[in-house]
Write a protein that binds this DNA or RNA. Structure first.
Lengths: 209, 209
DNA sequence: GTTTTCATGTAACCCGTTACATGATTCA
DNA sequence: TGAATCATGTAACGGGTTACATGAAAAC
């Protein structure tokens, strides 16, 4: 029941919410959602999936019709297994989303939560965005506090760059928060003006379900 | 002997290279160097320190002169312990720096290596910067490959922002690489022109030692 | 002199990785 | 039919955190 565990739960259930999948595929998508850093190992994924089955959140279905009535799957089950979210699974996902607390604006976690904003009620989105922002602002305060010339030009540079990147992210969040407050959605606020493609201007979906 | 382990080694030895310290203090500085994310627990730090003592990389000295000849430190040793880098410790640090391989441009690791660029030979700096850059460029390629309109406006936004941040970092690295190639140092290349304070323009130190 | 903060230490636990193994599918 | 890839599975290991415990110094 630790933090990281819940994040994985969220990610897996969230992805299966979109469409049923088998583990191998799931893992690839997970790689994108967990973003950048992590490439979940099978040693984690499969046990987790079976745990979820046991909890009734997902069901497994052999993707291959086991046509042969004989000793088709003798021994351990093999062959593709397609996992599908159950009603309880959807409930659990919603619960995870709604109760998202302080961990939601932690470093590796925020992105995952953001990735499922489409299924997140507006007030929760706002809570998470604001939480994330103040988290970053705390960090900025720490950074600045430890200001002044440092050991050498490299540490200076690192410091400067970190500061700037964080400030930029805070501005980004501020923009999102503002439009969330105003309309309950994001409007595509590219810092660099996005030329053309006004097709995506209207299709910002609020929370469905 | 895992990756993370070496990173901690680098960070600890690197910090002690600057000045002797006791564990509690070390941990606070570590928090800054490891940056942002990690706050190393004592449960990790102290055992590690004793390991280093055993390997001869550092020495422990009770900061309090145990003036009382009697049962001053009966039982387990307590009171501040100041850790100091030995000659072997410096060697080990140099070795870690020189042999820095692919892990040096991994996400959580790059910053640590960068933090000790002041004690890193120029050719190694260059290797790390370039490694980091191509790492990020790989990521950009992946990102773009999975381009096109996504599930909803939120995932779009996340994607856009991630892309932009990464591109920015690549540019930053490109600048550093260029000046490293030219002069073997960084020049303070603020993206946003830094007004005033031209004091720091000349003091970029090459690798000393 | 008692509370608070600094400082060190340790054992249990947990989550994820590593490394390995095997079964299915596709393609030459 | 054999090699390469897709796909699932598991046991052992490991590093780090959590939670706990204790001691010394400082603050009140």
């Amino acid at each position: 029941m630790s933090r990281r565990t819940e994040m994985l739960e969220l990610a897996i259930l969230g992805l299966l919410h979109d469409s049923p999948m088998h583990g191998y595929e799931l893992r690839k998508r997970l790689h994108l959602v967990l973003g950048t850093v992590r490439t979940l190992s099978y040693g984690t994924l499969y046990p987790r999936l079976r745990e979820f089955v046991q909890r009734g959140w997902i069901t497994e279905a052999p993707a291959l019709p086991a046509s042969v009535g004989g000793p088709a799957l003798r021994g351990g089950r093999r062959g593709r297994i397609t996992y599908e979210l159950t009603a309880e699974g959807k409930e659990r996902f919603a619960e995870l989303v709604d109760h998202s607390g302080p961990t939601a604006w932690e470093d590796g976690t925020f992105d995952v939560h953001f990735a499922f904003f489409g299924r997140t009620p507006s007030h929760v989105r706002l809570r998470i965005l604001e939480g994330r922002r103040s988290r970053l602002e705390e960090r900025l305060a720490l950074f600045r506090e430890a200001a002044g010339p440092r050991r050498d030009a490299y540490t200076d540079e690192l410091h400067r760059h970190g500061l700037e990147a964080t400030e930029r992210e805070v501005r980004w969040l501020a923009g999102l928060i503002e439009s969330e407050r105003r309309s309950g959605t994001v409007r595509p606020t590219s810092d660099v003006p996005t030329r053309g493609t006004d097709s995506a201007t209207e299709d910002s979906p609020p929370n469905k379900e």
